[in-house]
Amino acid sequence: MDFRKIEGFENLEMCYISNFSRGFISRNKNLLERLTWTPLTQFILEKSVYGTPIFKLGDGGNKILVLSGIHGNELPPQIANVKLLNEFINNDLNHTLYFIPFASPKSTMYNERTFNSMDLNRSSHINNSLSNLIIKAIVEEGIDFVGDFHSTSYNSNPGFESIFSSKSPSPESFLIANYISQDVGSDMISFDYAGSSYKGAVEDVCNLKKIPAITGEVLCPFGNVVGGSVEKSLSQMKSFLSYFGI
């Protein structure tokens, strides 16, 4: 992947996953009003106008991805991911961190679950879908671990704060999820084999490729942000990273 250093942000590199997913995230007022405005936040939103950006910090150790926005109307993890990148921008890191705060800027702009009527968490196994391009980038870059962060509404699936994982063929998926569950109190949802319940989730496709991955869910109505939901998603992300000593 063609990562390039970003002037004005020490140690930050960026490239694009796709340029057909572009969107004006600032049009999503429910999200915009809850972002902490910094030069880096402004930069992230500006770059999302041209597609799906992936950001890279550090060099060495494990390569770890924090992903959010697979469903554009799940706002807390997208806000949390921007906060996380802002927090880590000046840190000395013992691993290489990757951030995709907005997987589908267009979906986030319109506050929609799908991208061009496609559920990206049911289609990452479909060649050249947007989520499949994220999978291809994970493989190309040699990313070792993936945390995919979502929010779930009442009376939806799963409908409660949780961590998804599977025990096979990537057993460390289960170990990571168990660590986060014990650390922050999120319920565990574990499958014996990745993709056995449904196909196309980013987590499952990664695990099937033997790239250990988990999915974090926090409780929040779709398209909105309720008190504590951003903080809870951020705590899941930080717990995911703390598993690796970050």
Rank of each mutant, 00 (worst) to 15 (best):
E46K: 13
V49M: 15
V49F: 15
Y50E: 09
I54G: 02
F55A: 03
G58C: 03
N62R: 12
N62A: 11
K63Q: 10
I64C: 04
V66W: 04
S68G: 06
S68T: 00
G69S: 04
H71E: 03
H71P: 01
G72R: 00
L75S: 01
P77D: 01
L85S: 09
E87G: 10
D92G: 07
L93S: 06
L93I: 03
H95D: 03
P101M: 02
S104V: 08
P105G: 12
S107V: 14
S107Y: 05
S107T: 07
N111K: 07
T114D: 15
F115K: 12
F115M: 14
S117T: 12
M118Y: 09
D119A: 06
D119C: 08
N121F: 09
S124Y: 13
H125T: 07
H125Q: 10
I126V: 15
N128M: 09
N128K: 11
L130P: 02
I134R: 01
I134P: 00
I135V: 15
A137Y: 04
V139W: 15
E140K: 15
I143A: 11
I143E: 03
V146T: 06
G147V: 05
D148G: 04
S151F: 01
S153K: 08
S153T: 11
N157S: 11
N157H: 06
N157I: 13
F164A: 05
S165C: 09
K167I: 08
K167S: 10
S173C: 07
